[in-house]
Structure formats: C-alpha cells, structure tokens
Design a protein around this nucleic acid. Sequence first.
DNA 1: ACCTGAACACCGTTCAAGT
DNA 2: ACCTGAACACCGTTCAAGT
Lengths: 204, 204
Amino acid sequence: MRKLKTERQPEILDAALAIADEHGIDALTMRAVAERIGVTPMAIYGYFRNKNELLDGLVGRLLTSLPQGLPGESWDQRLSAFAWATRRLAREHPGVFPLLFARPSVTPDAVAVVDLIYQALIDAGVPDAEVPRIERLITTFVLGFATSEANGRFSASGDGIRSRRARGDFPAHQRLMAHLDSPADLDAEFAADLADLVRIIRPV
Amino acid sequence: MRKLKTERQPEILDAALAIADEHGIDALTMRAVAERIGVTPMAIYGYFRNKNELLDGLVGRLLTSLPQGLPGESWDQRLSAFAWATRRLAREHPGVFPLLFARPSVTPDAVAVVDLIYQALIDAGVPDAEVPRIERLITTFVLGFATSEANGRFSASGDGIRSRRARGDFPAHQRLMAHLDSPADLDAEFAADLADLVRIIRPV
DNA sequence: ACCTGAACACCGTTCAAGT
DNA sequence: ACCTGAACACCGTTCAAGT
C-alpha cells in the first residue's frame, strides 16, 4: 500500500475527463491520459493505484461540481436545483456520467450531496424514519433519468419499430401512435416528473 | 455485411451469461465464451459481428425472460409483476443487468415489454398523451433501483462515513443517525416506493 | 522524489487457410 | 458451411532502473 502523490491528481483527472468528453469512455485509457499530460503511462500509477481508482476520482470530480445548496432557498427549490444540476452534468459528460450508477460513492463528496437532500426532505416535513428511503427514491430516479438520456435510452426509437408497430404486434403502441414521436421535449418531461415526485413528498 | 449463422447463438448467449454470473462482467471475454463452448475465439464471429452485438444479444435474452403479463390481471397487478420480475432479474444477473441501462433496446423484445406497461397505464385511466411519459418515469425508476442494488449503490455505506458523520460535518446525517443503519429491508423499501409511484398514476 | 523503459499477460479483431 | 491458426494493434500493470 504505497502512499500516493496528490500534486498532479487534479491535472490527471482534467485530462481523463477531457478525453472521455471528446472521444468517449472507451478512449479513456491510461496510455491516453499519460500522453495528454506529457508523461509515461507508468507515471500515472504514482497518483492513482490503478485505473479503477482513477475512475473513482472522476466520479468524485463530478459530484463536487454539483451545487452546494444555498441556505436561503426553500426545500423544493433546493431539491429542484439538485435535480437540474445533475441532469446538466449528464449532458456535459455523457460518457463519464453513467459511472455514478456503478460506483457506490461513499466518498465525502457523495455524502455531502446526500446530506443536502436529507436536509431538504426534513425541511419538507418528511418524517425522519422515511427520509433515507425518499432520498434513495429521488436520487435513483434523477440518476436514472440522466443516465438514460446520456446513453440514448430515450431517443433511438427510430425505424424498425415504426414498421413493426404498424404490423399490429403491439396494440398499445398502435393506439398511442400519435403520442410516440420520440420524447420531443425532455426538459418539459423532466419538469413534469419532478412535479409528480414532489407530490409524493408533500403529504407523506 | 456477412450473413450471420443463428444455430448456436442461444448456446453462445448461455455461455456468456454463465461466465458473467460466475466470474463477473470483466471475465466476459470473447476468448472465455469460446473456450466454454469448446471452440476457437474466431468461431464466435460467425454468430455475432462483434462483442458489442453479443452484449446486445444478452440484453435481449434478459428482456425475453420477463413475464408476458397475463390478461386476467388488474393493471396494478401487471405493473407490480413487471417491477418485481425486473428486480429479481437484477439479483440473478447483477453483472449483466446494468447493460439494460446502457443499450437503447429497440429490439422487439424491449418493445414488447414497453407495450405491456403502456396497456397497464391505459387500463389505469392515464390519458393517452401522458402514457409514454409515465412509462418512462416508471421504467427509469425500476431499472434504476434494480441497477443500484446490482451495483451495490445502496449498501456499501460502511465505516469511513460513520466516523465522518460523528465528526459533525453532515448535520442531516447526524440527526438521522438512528435511521441510517444501511437500508436493511430492500424488499419493503421497493414495495413502499412502488406504492408511492402508483399514487402518482391513480389521480393523474 | 518523480519518472522512464522494457516486458508480461492479456484483449478484440483481421485475414487467410483448412476440412 | 463451419471452424482454426497465426498475427496485429492494442490494453492494464509489474518490476527494475534512471535522474
């Protein structure tokens, strides 16, 4: 368990994030990161024990870039700010964002975000015993929505379907045909979803 | 665009799924699959154009194993059956399951599942124009919950936090300390979440 | 204290050949 | 029609050495 250097960690994470943003997550290799900061691949191992820890560092970087939550705002303003900021993050870093789902994130950064949501729910009047569950419910949805968008799960309907739909194999699709022109306005949809979720919280 | 053989595709997918289940997704290599069915790595390429298409096949396999929805059941029974079956799938195949989030799945298998949920929502009285949004809301949550569980996002709290919590850096955590002993009963939590989501649907 | 160079055990995938 | 063998261009990571 060697002690890690920290000096150039931010520089390395910057490089890694830039590579993933520009060329996709598959292009994020130790060798590519090294080349980008003008160093031999092995130099990276002085700062991160292995590639997995570098990815953990990337997750931490994403989390710290979320808003800290100004104390003056109301609970639903704070919740909403978190949700929209998370979604914006996914759009800015679609390659890296899905890692948030994969990595437990028990880092201080992650706990800080959770603490913010806990506080918002407490302020909303959610009973203490219910707060952790509702927090998981909300972050699961928000993370899931943002990840779906980043991965193209909501678009991509395309052609093959349309014909099959017409063939009548899927009766509900046929009936809803007028409303299936791909989720045109995801901003509006996300807003409506959040409103629905807040309705869960309110009278809990 | 060579024509692919189909005969041994199921056999190959079986092998791939078994490897991922037994040794994790990282152990799922073309070479390992080939060895498992007693063939050279290159033989696989007669059945799947590349590794990505093999993974798509795996996603299809997971989707077809979901229940088809008996017509005799009520809409909330059908919705509930889908949700619990999805979660069970994630527990049986934690390594492969997260692929469902990554791959758009516009395959017939995926559309069939969506059609089932559409129908349940229609039967629940959700207005046609709202059905696709509510479907995405629900599947996003269910997929997100199951993926979180498969990836250990809900457990894994552990030690580092506990001390930090005690240090008082996170006030909401401190207040809720009695309720943070890791999400003990995820079955009950999932049930409560589903009940909350159904309350969204009911009076839409 | 920080970085390099060479090497190892793997990958996915190509191409040409074998039966 | 189906599969094999050898090879290529990559990976992450080790170990020992260089300044």
